[in-house]
Design a protein around this nucleic acid. Structure first.
Lengths: 340, 340
DNA sequence: TGTTCACATGTGCACGGTCACAAATGTGAA
DNA sequence: TTCACATTTGTGACCGTGCACATGTGAACA
């Protein structure tokens, strides 16, 4: 009946040492795979550990080493497909590398909320931060709070490229735009994401670059908020005038909203209007019509993100990963040559 | 030029104490809002903290208190809308309560993967665990590894209800089924989720219960995997025979796949076939046709989940939250009376 | 004026690891 | 046998915080 004694302290390194007949330091060496430990000693210690169900205490370790082995993720809209996939990939990669991950969500993207989230992460003594959010403001706050841990952004910002790792959003947007131009479209709208999201800006730039390069006149992009609802409302207005034959939407959700509005307006897709999305969410293949879009490899992004971040941690040798991940155009049935 | 001296140790409680002319214990009391501290003393200490940019060291705290203030989430398919929303809500609620959250994803749901994920959480000394995954196996492993921390599951399992908190999936499924029956449908299929997911089972049970209660003959549900792709392939087969007039899908993604297959088969929705989903993902309102579905309040679920878990932690007074969250039927345009 | 008591503050150690350094043991050549 | 040196193991301090307990302080009361 010893099993339900109250408050049985978890076994410590010294308990193991006593039972194995060695010093606590020897146990510590076994834990850390120190090279000069006699095999027989090591085996004995390991056996005692097993018997005692010994688990190293992370807090103690973090305290004495001065390192938490934790990295933080600062994320906005974390239940959407893109961010959620990135987060999952980052967590997997971090765990693989022996790191723990802690996520702080931004409910709103104002100064105060960003500060609170960063504070939360810093209080945990995270060793590095991954930012999946509108960068510009976050970086301002990072600087303001004089946060000193290394950080990595999942999107290239242009001027902070040492910290950035990205899918080449510009190239992706150009692929999408070029696809529409190649089909013969000349009056193409762009439904962009929120201005302060780097991806949104990059995709917009890619769109404008390609249009310029191909000498196609452009109209001002419409600024959206990533949601299908916004796409729907924007669509209702756009399809009223119909002074265009194709739209490139900055993400799949907004593209879905556009399609909805198009049907409401009695338009036939893709005959009357071609639509291209961005992200290739798993649902996109089943939209009506199946959506032509640009696929990003989030898993790869997560892996490289962690590799980059860890390399910037003290002790690692800094690498600079400037090679962007190239997105792919997935052609489905939402695009066709213009009917007129 | 003192700002880039290497290795400036972060200020500790004693540094603050020295500058404020008090003992380290007094500083500690200020940190923990101890009642008997003179206002003036407290103010002085707080001021020094501000000056020094003092941040308490979480590892030291965890070590001396023996509590990590961290809870773990064990999640599968964490990039899908339901789990992702729950995770976000749980994180927010936990942060609110001063807790940290750490997520471990299951890549596969086999024994080994579950063990690895649980180990990862336990090594962090999480104080409690939230399970968002196929419960049955996870609970087996929990028991096997003799995990002793309290845990909460986001889904009711029937026999572990003290640990469970849930949207009443059965009631939700009955709402959906009843809606179809009320419209006049008598030959209704159910596209279920994976057998080992509690939600899937509960929704299936709700479907069968309601069909039984209304005296409508049923056919065996089809077991899917939550993905739109599966819905599509199941649909291709089902619409070949067309011995039914409505389908209740266990989630919105599979419903989307079904719709896709229905269009491929040249069917008119909802005239030829009515479809109901489950979850009300933000995109569902923009499907073609907009999807009738059952809405779950994930945010509320996350909040109550944390409340329940924290109450089970040592020190809290155990509450039992047996009141399930009631889901709501959202009627859109994917359902109509049968045409014949 | 001394006693009591609540409040405010200080002292020293424990938490469970790691680190720097010291000591013991083993090994091979002079 | 002895010394030099590599390998293996041990000793004690330290990381930053909280806890138990001791101590100091002032007001209320007899």
């Amino acid at each position: 009946m010893t099993e339900n004694l109250p408050k049985v302290r978890a076994p410590s390194i010294r308990d193991v040492a006593r039972l194995a007949g060695v010093s606590h330091q020897t146990v510590s060496r076994v834990l850390n795979n120190h090279p000069s430990i006699r095999e027989s000693t090591k085996a004995r210690v390991l056996e005692v550990m097993e018997d005692l169900q010994y688990r190293p205490n992370r807090a103690a370790r973090a305290l004495s080493r001065g390192r938490s082995r934790t990295i933080g993720i600062l994320s906005a809209q974390s239940s959407e497909y893109g961010p959620a996939s990135s987060i999952a990939a980052i967590q997997d990669a971090a765990r693989e590398a022996g790191y723990y991950v802690n996520t702080a969500n931004l409910t709103t993207v104002d100064q105060e909320s960003i500060e609170a989230a960063l504070m939360h992460l810093m209080l945990q003594a995270v060793e590095g931060i991954v930012v999946i959010a509108p960068q510009v403001r976050v970086f301002d706050v990072l600087e303001q709070l004089s946060i000193t841990v290394p950080f990595v952004s999942l999107q290239s910002t242009g001027h902070l490229d040492d910290h950035a790792l990205s899918v080449d959003q510009i190239a992706g947007a150009r692929l999408a735009t070029r696809h529409l131009i190649d089909l013969g479209h000349r009056r193409i709208y762009h439904l962009a994401g929120p201005q302060d999201w780097i991806e949104a800006e990059a995709r917009m730039r890619g769109f404008l670059d390609e249009m310029g390069a191909m000498d196609v006149p452009t109209t001002a992009p419409i600024l959206g908020d990533w949601t299908a609802d916004f796409g729907y409302h924007a669509g209702r207005e756009l399809f009223g005038r119909r002074d265009f034959t194709a739209i490139f939407s900055s993400n799949d959700q907004m593209a879905l909203g556009l399609m909805h509005a198009a049907r409401d307006a009695g338009l036939d897709l893709p005959r009357d209007i071609s639509i291209v999305g961005f992200d290739d969410i798993p649902e996109a293949a089943h939209f009506w019509p199946p959506l032509t879009t640009v696929r990003q490899d989030f898993a790869e992004l997560g892996r490289r993100c962690i590799a980059l971040l860890l390399s910037n941690l003290p002790g690692g040798e800094p690498i600079v990963d400037r090679e962007p991940i190239m997105p792919r155009l997935i052609v489905r049935e939402s695009t066709a040559p213009p009917a007129f």
